[in-house]
Write a protein that binds this DNA or RNA. Sequence first.
RNA 1: GCCCUCGUCGUCUAGAGGUCAGGACCCCCGCCUUUCAAGCGGGCAAGACGGGUUCGAGUCCCGUCGAGGGCACCA
Length: 481
Amino acid sequence: MTKPRVRFAPSPTGYLHIGGVRTALFNWLWARKTGGAFILRIEDTDQERSTEASRQIILDSLGWLGIDWDEGPGKGGAHGPYTQMERLPIYAAHAERLIASGHAFRCFCTKAELDAQREVLKKKDPKAQFVYPGTCRSRSDRPDGPFVVRFNSPTEGSVTYVDKVFGEVVTPNSAQQDFVLLRSDGVPLYNFGAVVDDMTMGITLVARGRDHMVNTPPQIMLYGAFGAPVPEFAHLPMMLAPNGEKLSKRHGAVSVTEYRDQGYSPVAVLNYLARFGWSFGDKEVFSKEELISSFGWENCGRGDGKFDAKKFLAIDFEHLKSDALTTEDAYVARVRPFLAKNGVDASDDAKLKQAIRTIRGRARTYIEAAEMLDFYFREPPKVDEAAAAKFLVAASAPILSGFGAALRAGDAWDEKAVEERTNAWLAAAAIPIKDLGQPARVALTGKTASPGLWEVLAVLGRDASLARIDAAHARALGAGA
RNA sequence: GCCCUCGUCGUCUAGAGGUCAGGACCCCCGCCUUUCAAGCGGGCAAGACGGGUUCGAGUCCCGUCGAGGGCACCA
């Protein structure tokens, strides 16, 4: 069996939609699992909407996700170019082939003429569906003037194919008409461009969204007309908004870059997307490697689904919590930009790692992590005034001074040592730890919610810890005056 | 209107004729606890509807209803 060749063919008409990423992901997983090739192709034939900026966003987004391509923009390959507008001569040549073999013809009807006919029909019967009447099908002259190339579509029979996820799909040819292959300006329409490209690029399996399922029969006809082998097809159910509408910007974040900017783990994004429309028993959380080894079309579902931001967040949380899923080095690399954005200098690698260990069980995104990490690196820490007003009061002053004194009573400074010294003092002074907890927390972190006291002390170190306790003590005394 | 699809807890899903219909998210309760989380334990909740086939159907067949995609010189 030859190695599969699959592709992802986005249009550079905006951000990279999360539904598009899922399509890319499934193709990519299959290529990586089977040792096949994953090809990236840019379908920019909609010149009205295609932009270079958007093309770059697609490339950047895939890069961030770690979805790499074997052939395509910036990578080259034996079947290029990989951008459709650079392939115009190829489409022209293929259109000529079909005209020569009688599978296609030049149509000189103008859009205006066709629209007029459409109008007339609409007037006669508002419910009727206009189909191209075959006006130019058998004309042999070749007048001056613009023309489109149309496919000579059969009206009888049907097209049958076996979808890798939907099974056998039969479509009567009566549903087809003489669809346009090449526009008058020589730019191909979707179905023609896709088939010529997939054919010449040696694509063996086309996996795409279910919204393309209706394009498959005409595309299969084209392969037949070219006498080319038909690739396999796999259609993926759609990802809808929670209310069942098509998922779009109005339903919240839908572009990959937004999730990147919100501090999501790229692997978590892959994980959530993979588990949407695909399953592997009861397993929910996957590493990238597990995704590759577990993936298969047979486990793809057929029903459309609704995007669930909460579940997505939960999956991200699983990835940030797990040392196996997100190594400490990866965590450092991902969270650092968010810290920098907040004006925090966390260049001390060892301290950052130690600090991360205390918060990674609580932060669901890197943005949350950066917020939780903030007090470790900011001197003095930001102080929650409500918390200070409540806990740094006169009554806390003796507790804070006692706490400082207890900590100063020894040299060892690690979680165990500071805990032992503190507990010894608390016991001797008959102070319940509950009385120390919140004042000490506010003193050290500026907040009422934080990792455990001993962990915080250990990460902060002796000097910073004592300085913060002293400052808080001073404030508590002042509050009493 | 016509063509093609789909239909299990609120959501993502497991299930390949015999299961107390399982897991996860959400939500609720409890335990743990120096705070907040996390963790652990428990709970809530489902096969669209109607007919068949079968000893037995979420699983197979038919119909109905509901939802989605398409019917372009968009992709």
